[in-house]
Every structure is written in C-alpha cells, then in structure tokens.
Amino acid sequence: MYKIKTLNNISQEGLALLGGNYAVTTEDPSPDAILLRSFKMHDMELPESVKIIGRAGAGVNNIPIEEYAAKGVVVVNTPGANANAVKELVILGLLLSSRKVVSGINWAKSVKDDPEVEKLIEKEKSKFAGQELTGKKIGVIGLGAIGVLVANAALSMGMEVYGYDPFVSVESAWGLSCEVKRALSLDEIVLDCDYITLHVPLIDQTKNMINLERLQKAKPGLKLLNFARGALVNNEVVKEALDKGYLSCYVTDFPDQELLNMENVIGIPHLGASTAESEENCAKMAVRQLKEYLENGNIVNSVNYPDCYMGLCSTNARIGITHTNVPNMVGQITSILAKDNINIGDMLNKSKGGFAYTLLDVELHVTEDTVKRLESIEGILKVRVIKND
C-alpha cells in the first residue's frame, strides 16, 4: 500500500481517485508521496521515503525543486487545471480597471446614511465614468493554458488582441484563435496596447520584466493586469509609473501592504484559482500524476525531471532510476543488468538540465543485490523496482 501525505486540505473528489491501494495521512513520517497546494516546503525536512511530490496548482515557488531533484525526488504540478478560473478573474480585472466599479462601490457605501442618497448618487456618478472594452487593444504576454483562454475571451468581447510568447508550444498554438495578432517584442505591446495582462512563470528571465524604462514608452492610460506572479512587476516601478501617469491602473492578484496603500491599484487577495471547480480539477490532475509515477514509473508534468512515458509494463519487471545527467550513465546501468543476465525489453532515457531519468522494462525478476549495485553507481539518486513479477 502506498502512503500519501497531505500538507494542505485537498479536494475529496481528487483524493477519491486514489483507490484502495493508497492510505492518505497528515502525520506519517515515511510517506511515498506528498500532495500539497501552497504549503511552504523550503524549511521542511524531507523524509527519504518520498519519491514524488504533487503540487495541486501551477506555481512551485513554495517547493525547493532543485534541492529535491538532487535527492532524486520528482516534483510535478498541474498546469492548466485552474486555467478557466484564472481566465474568468482576469476578465473581471479588465472590467474593474475600466469602469471604476471598486471606487464607485466604496463611495456609495460612504454616503449610505445620507437621507438624499439617491439624488446624491445621480449627481456624483459622473466621477466614476469609465470606458468600454470593445475596440480596445490588449496585449497578452505568455500564451500558455491561461493566456490562450484570456486572448480568446478578449476577442469574444470585441477587443483587438496581441499575443507575445517566443516559446509558445504547439499545443497552445492549436488552441489560440487565428485572429490573435502576433507581437514580436514586449516593447511593441507596451507601445500600442490599452491593456496588458501577464501570464508567464516567475523565473530569472521574467522577474521585473515590466520595468520603468518600458512603461515610459507606454500608450497613455495603459492598464496593467498581473494574475501570474507578484515579482514580475516591482512595487517601486508600479508607484512611479502611476505617479507619473505611465500607468492609469494596476490590477494584481498578489497585493501587499505597500500596493494596498497606493491609489489606482486594485488588489485582489490571490483569488485566481479560488473556486471549488479549480481546486477539484487541480487535485484530480495531481492525484493521477502521483499514481502514474508510483504505479508505472511514468513522469507527467514534472518541473525538475523530464517527462517520461512508457505506458504499462509489458514485461516481468520495470525499473525507474533518477540520476544526474552525465556521460556513460546508461552504459553503466545496462552493464550491471547484463552481468545479471537481465534482458531489456524496452528502455527510455531522458534528461532535463543536470538531471535525468531512465525507465527500463526487463524480462527477469530484479533482486535486491542488483538494486544495490545500481545504487552504487556514482550519480545514481534513486532506484525503484516498480513491478517485479
């Protein structure tokens, strides 16, 4: 029986997919896998028994993925599972930035006790006049699962949509409307668009990607939306851009005290994926990926190891090996199997950065002695015999 430790509350609909061969726990000191949402793992001591970590969500900033890769532990996330929930909130953000709804509601509440409140509202409502989205230009930076949905939704509302993503995948491109215009640079979008919405991961290359130099060139009245990661835009840049009029509004799903004290900032309390449907979708996807790895050795949607899929094992045994990405590793592995007269029926070896994964279907029972000799190879991190008839 596999033991799954949860570090956050996980949708019961997702956990129900585990079935009878799994035990879900919050306390066990030696689980086979960990399932979490936003729990911060950086200061956590990871049990040696852990083989895989499933993040029920897309962001993995709360997980030390490189450190775990060096331990041979696979980390997977669930890209796209919460895409519709985030898309809908982005559309709301567009409307909020355009129609001064938040400030209008707050003002209306402030005069609720005035006996002439209805007349006062009619008199003062012009202070909260906004603009319509139809006919306006929006730049979508990042065309992954969420960006594609946002771009298509913006088109359906009559907006002129520009997309920028130099690394767009074939799968994303298939889902993107042909009416989305291709931008060749970030600066092109900043110069020409009325709205910009960010949908890129937070990595070294994207941190502070929207800087003051870019915003100085912005089209007057630009509205910036950030439902991706807070650190994509620096707070000081936002403040100066608002003060100098480079930005007219900043909508973020990642507010902090500094941002919440700025005028023309709409701070939403990280609600992007906060729907029952999204949490259920993320949990189900994460559970399926944990099961695929534990039961079949297949890696799906990993952030620190290569995806690797060989379906169901068709031979007597299957071996999964996480290791460093160095020359002659496969040769050393196969040499040990050959010495034990173990024939390889099928094999897949893939690498990602400094780490690699080798999956082998073999035609004989794999002994503990064979496993120990595989583990003794320099650079081998974990050896698992997944099936051993």
Rank of each mutant, 00 (worst) to 15 (best):
V180C: 01
N106W: 05
I189Y: 02
N21S: 11
L290D: 02
L15Y: 00
P29Y: 13
R99H: 13
S30Y: 15
Y164S: 01
N82Q: 05
C282R: 07
V111S: 10
K217Y: 12
S49T: 14
E132L: 10
K339Q: 15
V75T: 02
S98G: 07
I299W: 02
A231C: 06
I321D: 12
S156N: 15
A356S: 11
L364V: 15
P255I: 00
G72A: 00
M347Q: 12
S248D: 09
L120D: 02
A151C: 06
A129H: 13
V180Q: 00
L36K: 00
M262N: 05
S126V: 13
V330L: 13
K119V: 09
D389T: 12
D165V: 02
I34R: 02
G163K: 02
N235Y: 05
A283E: 04
K3D: 10
A129P: 01
K239T: 00
G379Q: 07
W174S: 12
I386L: 02
L120G: 07
V180G: 00
A153C: 03
V190T: 06
Q12S: 14
A23N: 10
V326F: 08
C313K: 06
I333G: 03
A183L: 05
D32Y: 01
C308L: 14
A145V: 07
L18N: 04
E45I: 14
D113R: 10
P201R: 02
G267V: 05
L294W: 08
N82K: 11
Y164P: 03
C193T: 07
L15M: 04
D32A: 03
C249N: 13
G135V: 07
A70E: 14
L312A: 12
N281Y: 07
V200A: 06
N304M: 06
I53W: 01
Y164I: 03
V170W: 03
H42S: 03
N21E: 14
E88F: 01
E277T: 15
L294F: 06
P47S: 13
T334V: 11
L224Q: 09
P306E: 01
L260G: 10
T367A: 09
G158S: 09
N234L: 06
E13R: 10
G54Q: 02
N264S: 06
E67M: 12
M285W: 02
N106M: 14
K244Y: 14
V237I: 14
D253P: 15
V117E: 10
N9A: 11
I210T: 11
I105W: 03
S376G: 07
D114F: 04
A231M: 14
S177G: 05
A151V: 04
S38Q: 10
I321H: 08
E188M: 08
R288P: 14
V74I: 13
D256L: 15
K5L: 15
L184G: 01
K372S: 15
F39H: 08
I386M: 06
